[in-house]
Amino acid sequence: MSEPKKKNEFLYFAMRNGKLKVGAVIVFIFVLIAIFGPKFARYPLNEFVAGGPNPPSADFYMGTTAYGQDVYAQFVYGLGTTFIVGIIGGGLATLLGMLVGFVGGYKGGWVDEVLNIITNIILVIPTFALLLIMVAYLKLRGVLIESIFIGLTSWPWAARAIRAQTFSLANREFVDLAKLSGMKTMKILFREIAPNMMSYLFMTFILQFGGAILTAATLDFIGLGPTQGVSLGLMMNWATNGSALLLGYWWWFVPPGIAITAVVGALYIMNVGLDEVFNPKLREM
């Protein structure tokens, strides 16, 4: 069995998996909205274009905020920001977690001990205190800085989970057999161990992705978020501040809420589907 043929096989099962397809389609739709949505915005972002709150209409597709800003413009731009924070922040955390988790779990011994200590230190550092200090130094903060910050502080959970998985896989007999075949450590990690964790790694990424979006929203809420722009988290917080729930301005807070839930939920469904694709025993043959 050659390499390309194996890939086709995964693709074949991936294409037949309903859960994976449904999840991917939902995520894809939101990505399309984030990319092409701004082209259809009739009003500039965050400008006070209407006198006050308006429900959705032909003029304002998704209504306006209590202050008269176009919700549609906020939504499509905010969606883009949210994806960026999720991908960069979640991606960075997953990568760091993988690196530390793989090496610690596979090597064991003192290497593992040292990595464990570092992980635990990062884990107990109070994130917000760190942020306050950083805010004092950085006057202008963009989405990128925020994402990197989230990524650098949230990897320890991923590292712990991946370390535990790696540890249990590293003691399996097929890893011994790979060693007996003279395979190099890195090759064993990426060719033997990592593929067994594909769905697990993806799951970690999803959790980190969702976590990054939520953390960003929290940061935005206490004023430590980006100094410019908009995000779904910011929208929801503005809505809360503007008492949207009490006053019944559902069009203000429902779309960002649905978008966050739908994106994270769709990624989760994809994860279940991927599990079936990667694990032949779960394939219903």
């Binding site: 007999e173 097929f174 011994d176 007996l180 593929p195 067994n196 032949p280």
Partner: peptide, 16 residues
């Protein structure tokens, strides 16, 4: 070379 107790565990379960 070696052969171990559990033949199933000796094969990476996600590959043929």
């Amino acid at each position: 070379q070696g052969v171990f107790q559990d033949p199933f565990s000796s094969c990476n379960p996600i590959f043929k």
